[in-house]
């Protein structure tokens, strides 16, 4: 009874999320219709990691207590992890193609999910290569634990591969460093705005104008832009467009005397609205996160039960 209620609830909930995702949520001002994908992309990405964690926990429990049920849960979590990682990768790739022009870019999060997929694939390859079921469970659990020890290092290691991420953190949640950053001629000359690395190369005075030379890394390419600020009117003068993006670069504020000036460099996402700062989008996003989590747990237990039943049938000499 409870299981049936749970099943129907999850189904209806996710149905509503899907409807809301396309009909109720407004198109994103910067990213357009493709911005809707975040409602599916983020939950599936998050559940990929959750599945990996559960797989390791239940592998450990299996090694400790030797109960087949624990291994079934570990295996089911790994299977779901693989499915969700594929969903997250596909939705992410569509988004990436539309917004940045490439399906795949070895962005840190792309690297991380690729590593998880490789681990899942290796885990299944190991299990299918062993005939004895007891040994299959045993060695599978050990591999899951070894992988679990190695993966946290990826979190520290991957940002070293590339220092810029394309993941639009600011398109999702608008945090203070999404607004702008203060750079000083003789002080801090480097920083990040939104998800871009910004470096102040120099400041020049031209009559009433203060022109800053900044280098911005976007999409793996280094651009040098020269936004300027009018000191007479105390307003931004030249606003520069960051090539191949929807972003404008400007000097928002100017403090200090020539020789020791601080400029606040802002990168405006035309309209600069975070995807989730829009209320309906935020609500649908959390509803989706909740719905997918319910779906995950439902599928997880369902799959583990199927594996259990399968095991019992094999015990009785019946194979399907």
């Amino acid at each position: 009874m409870l299981a049936t209620t749970f099943k129907w609830f999850t189904g209806i909930w996710l149905g509503l999320v899907a409807v809301a995702m396309f009909l109720w949520v407004p198109a994103h001002e910067g990213l357009g219709n493709v911005g809707r994908i975040v409602i599916m992309h983020v939950p599936t990405g998050w559940l990929t990691s959750v599945a990996f964690l559960f797989s390791a926990i239940y592998s450990w429990r299996y090694l400790r207590h030797g109960r087949a049920r624990d291994d079934a849960l570990a295996l089911a979590a790994a299977e779901l992890g693989l499915i969700f990682s594929v969903l997250a990768t596909v939705t992410g790739a569509i988004f990436a193609k539309v917004v940045w022009g490439t399906y795949w870019n070895w962005d840190p999060r792309e690297t991380a999910i690729a590593a998880l997929m490789l681990i899942y694939a290796a885990y299944f390859a190991l299990r299918t290569s062993i005939e004895d079921r007891q040994r299959q469970r045993y060695l599978g659990s050990i591999y899951a634990l070894l992988a679990f020890v190695a993966v946290p290092f990826l979190i520290f290691v991957i940002p070293r591969v590339t220092d810029d991420t394309l993941h639009p953190n600011c398109a999702i949640l608008n945090t203070p460093n999404c607004q702008g950053i203060e750079l000083t001629e003789n002080g801090r000359i480097i920083g990040t705005v939104e998800d871009f690395k910004v470096e102040l190369l120099g400041i020049e005075q031209q009559a009433d104008l203060t022109v800053a030379t900044v280098s911005i890394v976007s999409n793996g390419t280094n651009y040098t832009l020269k936004p300027s600020f009018n000191r007479a009117s105390n307003k931004p003068e030249t606003i520069e467009r960051l090539p191949e993006t929807l972003r404008d670069v400007q000097i928002k504020r100017l403090v200090g005397e020539p020789g020791n000036q601080t400029v606040e460099i802002a990168i405006a996402n035309t309209g600069n609205i975070g995807l989730l700062t829009e209320q309906r989008t935020l609500l649908t996003f959390f509803a989706s996160l909740f719905g997918f989590t319910l779906l995950f747990f439902w599928l997880w237990w369902l799959r583990a039960d199927v594996l259990d039943i399968n095991e019992q049938l094999v015990q009785q000499g019946i194979t399907i």
């Binding site: 590593a115 190991l126 062993i130 290691v157 070293r160």
Partner: peptide, 23 residues
């Protein structure tokens, strides 16, 4: 201990040693 010994080793090892190789 597994039955398909040949290529399995590399498949299992690569994701685990990825952090090490990167650094």
């Amino acid at each position: 201990k597994a039955d398909g010994k040949g290529s399995l080793f590399t498949i299992l090892a690569f994701p685990l040693v990825l952090p090490l190789l990167i650094i």
